[in-house]
Amino acid sequence: MGWSLTIGRIAGTNIRLHFTFLLFLVWIGTADYLAGGTAAAVDSVVFIILVFLCVTLHEFGHIMMGRRFGVKTPEVILSPIGGIANMERMPDKPVQELLVAIAGPLVNVVIALALMAVFGLGLRNAFVIDFDTASLAQRLLLVNCMLVLFNLIPAFPMDGGRVLRALLAMNMGKPRATALAARIGQGFAFLFVLLGLFYNPILMLVGFFIYFAAGSEAQSAAFTGFASRLRVKDAMEPAPLTLPATAPLSLAVDNLLASPQREFPVMDGSSRVIGLLDRDMMLAGLRDHGPTVAVGEVMRECATISGEQPLVEAFARMRSRGARADVVADASGRVTGILTLENIAEMMMVESAQPGWRFKRRS
């Protein structure tokens, strides 16, 4: 996520603060300083920092449980509306996803129990308190109890929604379970927005986040559902035009205008793929260097993928690198096609209109 600052690294996971979190701290500190002086400002800022320490521990509950199932988490991002653990993927087995989802709230349960044991507090201290007179421990106890209850609301993709999806997937399969959980999550999103209008604007932000995140998860699950039966060669554009690295950029532009192809594999003198040139690179090259510059000077380097590779894996790799296309080659290094996000999106639209469509193998 842009506009965030790395503040540490634990067990291979970067901890990042979104800049809005820092603005939130400044806003809280300034408001309480104006209302009650330095002591009030320090108390509020310390409380917020401790709350987000609890949120970070919550996220590491997910991260450490995911690691047990081979799921890595490059970073966790803290913002005013909570923490986001950017896991590479969720475990494939519903039971494993359930355990990963429930691990975060269980961390908050442990924190709450520790506060109760150390400070001699009971649940009454959590739910019947006046924030203005309550101790720091009482306020943290309340926050952790609320984190447990709030995160277990079955609003996908929140923790409770992932628990719901995992339970549904045990009986109906992951794609259908995700679609149903996403619809339920979007229903809760509307409720959060409505409540936010009357009570707390932050609930509106949470509602918008849930709505769009649930839709994104549903699309991803729909793709995985149909793509799991396909390989790269089923989705690639076959027999693409190629360009020699020494060719002038003007030749690439001529090929672009004369064909529907938008990405071109670039070859060296031994007919090996050394890069990929797309339309945006051509335009940037024309603007910065002119039509006579060599194609090899404006291309991007790329590795090839196999036509036998599962489409789901190839798509995940493209997304992780921010690539819009990859070159497909056989064992001898001969270019056999190009896999593009545009083609994959078109296949998804066909699958949406006619589920179970049998895509013809391209060659």
Rank of each mutant, 00 (worst) to 15 (best):
120 G>A: 06
58 H>E: 03
54 C>S: 15
117 A>V: 13
69 F>M: 08
131 F>N: 14
95 V>N: 07
57 L>W: 00
143 V>D: 12
114 A>W: 00
109 V>Y: 08
99 L>I: 05
112 A>I: 10
107 V>H: 05
94 P>M: 01
64 M>V: 00
100 V>A: 08
76 V>F: 06
85 A>Q: 02
98 L>C: 04
51 V>Q: 09
92 D>P: 00
123 L>P: 13
141 L>Q: 14
49 I>V: 15
144 N>I: 10
105 P>I: 02
119 F>G: 10
141 L>H: 14
78 L>Q: 04
52 F>M: 10
50 L>K: 07
118 V>L: 13
62 H>T: 00
126 A>T: 14
60 F>H: 01
130 D>F: 10
88 E>N: 12
61 G>N: 03
77 I>F: 00
125 N>M: 07
66 G>Y: 02
47 F>G: 09
135 S>E: 09
69 F>V: 03
74 P>G: 06
95 V>H: 07
51 V>W: 00
55 V>P: 09
64 M>W: 07
140 L>A: 12
56 T>E: 10
123 L>G: 06
119 F>K: 09
54 C>R: 02
132 D>Q: 15
77 I>T: 12
93 K>Y: 00
74 P>Y: 04
92 D>G: 08
108 N>E: 04
131 F>S: 13
108 N>Q: 05
57 L>T: 01
99 L>G: 08
110 V>H: 01
148 V>D: 14
125 N>F: 04
76 V>H: 06
130 D>V: 07
90 M>I: 11
148 V>K: 14
86 N>T: 05
144 N>Y: 06
128 V>S: 13
57 L>M: 10
80 P>W: 05
121 L>T: 14
112 A>Q: 08
74 P>L: 05
56 T>F: 04
97 E>P: 05
129 I>G: 09
78 L>Y: 01
62 H>C: 01
54 C>M: 04
147 L>P: 13
99 L>D: 08
136 L>V: 12
96 Q>I: 07
92 D>I: 05
123 L>Y: 13
115 L>V: 09
48 I>F: 05
116 M>N: 09
144 N>P: 11
108 N>K: 07
71 V>N: 02
45 V>R: 10
130 D>R: 11
103 A>T: 07
96 Q>S: 14
91 P>R: 06
76 V>W: 07
53 L>N: 00
91 P>A: 07
107 V>M: 13
103 A>C: 12
68 R>A: 08
113 L>A: 15
44 S>W: 09
87 M>L: 14
124 R>E: 12
43 D>P: 03
119 F>L: 06
138 Q>Y: 00
82 G>F: 01
102 I>L: 15
